[in-house]
């Protein structure tokens, strides 16, 4: 779908001044204002209340935030999402980069089919993913079956029921989910890097590692930023995968901020605490997004070193 470029290309201010433009934007803006902005402002307001959802709310200032940062049960949940960032964002990006590096000098034919397959997990409802992996990790699932086959039956267990291993096990679902995304992005990106650059690096006597650092990585900068944005946000906010696989358990071994948010907002009836968690989560995600966008911009200014 190549679009013809008109006289006014990108970057130029769009069109002539016309107030009627506002009318076109109004319906979408109204929808977002009522069901996006307004709820967000209310979440911020609720986060300064002590409220069970009925009766009169009691304004408590920043007390809920003190709770969030001071209650080990809550801040541990935020630490757990860091573990998920490692598994569901850092690891997939590394795997994608590794594959891209290996494929950097090969021009692949038939990539279309691979791309469709590798990307497929992104389109599947998280409930379905959760159910599939629930079985893979179950007592009689394929993981344990393989372990028994290779004589490691002693290690076999119900992985999602294990206090120490449930979180990494869920993390690995994230690795699986996002690796394909990173591979599709990076392999497509690396195919656009001219092979000349690699030849030049080789003439300069670059080994595979310095070749990767000098050519592949800078060439994939934008792709890496997009991948990190998507996967880090996924890791920080995901609710349904954890909710359906473990519900936050065993104990609270896989309880993340979004699970707590649901718990306080809808089960424990501590709306203030739940809202404060929501605000902190949003701020973290906004900060991460801004940092990543900045990194991308900096790359555009001084590419190729």
């Amino acid at each position: 779908m190549s679009r013809p470029r008109g006289a006014a290309g990108r970057g130029s201010p769009p069109g002539e001044p016309r107030l009627v433009g506002f009318l076109y934007v109004l319906p979408a803006l109204a929808a977002f204002a009522v069901f996006g902005v307004w709820p967000l402002l209310q979440t911020i307001l609720f986060s300064t209340w002590k409220w069970k959802g009925i009766g009169t709310p009691e304004p408590v200032g920043l007390e809920n935030y003190v709770d969030v940062l001071g209650d080990p049960d809550i801040y541990t949940a935020f630490l757990r999402s860091l573990v998920l960032v490692v598994f569901a964002a850092i690891l997939p990006v590394c795997i994608g980069l590794l594959l891209a590096a290996l494929l950097s000098r090969v021009r692949i034919r038939g990539m279309g089919t691979y791309r469709v397959l590798l990307f497929l997990p992104q389109t599947i409802a998280m409930v379905v993913v959760a159910i599939a992996w629930g079985w893979i990790y179950s007592r009689d699932g394929i993981v344990n079956e393989i372990l028994r086959t290779v004589g490691l039956g002693g290690v076999a267990r119900a992985w999602l029921g294990d206090f120490d291993l449930a979180l990494p096990a869920i993390g690995l679902i994230g690795t699986w989910l996002n690796s394909g995304l990173c591979m599709v992005l990076f392999v497509a990106g690396v195919q656009k890097i001219p092979i000349d650059l690699y030849d030049a690096a080789r003439v300069d006597g670059a080994g595979p590692w310095s070749e990767f650092r000098a050519v592949t990585l800078p060439g994939l900068r934008n792709e890496v930023i997009v991948a990190l944005t998507l996967t880090v946000i996924f890791a920080l906010r995901n609710f349904d995968l954890i909710w359906i696989t473990t519900g936050g358990g065993p104990g609270d071994a896989t309880t993340t901020p979004s699970i707590l948010l649901y718990h306080f907002g809808f089960e424990a009836r501590r709306l203030g605490t739940g809202s404060a968690i929501a605000v902190v989560m949003t701020v973290v995600i906004l900060v991460v997004s801004v940092i990543l966008v900045r990194l991308g911009e900096r790359g555009d200014e001084g590419v190729a070193r």
């Binding site: 201010p13 769009p14 069109g15 002539e16 001044p17 016309r18 107030l19 009627v20 433009g21 506002f22 076109y24 934007v25 979408a28 803006l29 977002f32 069901f35 996006g36 902005v37 307004w38 709820p39 967000l40 209310q42 979440t43 609720f46 946000i233 920080l236 906010r237 609710f239 979004s258 948010l261 649901y262 907002g265 809808f266 709306l271 739940g274 809202s275 929501a278 605000v279 989560m281 949003t282 995600i285 906004l286 997004s289």
Partner: peptide
């Protein structure tokens, strides 16, 4: 295709909506 006062502000507001996690709106 058109320019009007506030167009940029509206655009950035809507872009913010791309990164606001839906989870944080769910209680209200």
């Amino acid at each position: 295709t058109m320019r009007f006062p506030g167009a940029n502000a509206i655009f950035y507001l809507l872009m913010a909506g791309l990164v606001i996690p839906y989870e944080s709106l769910i209680i209200p």
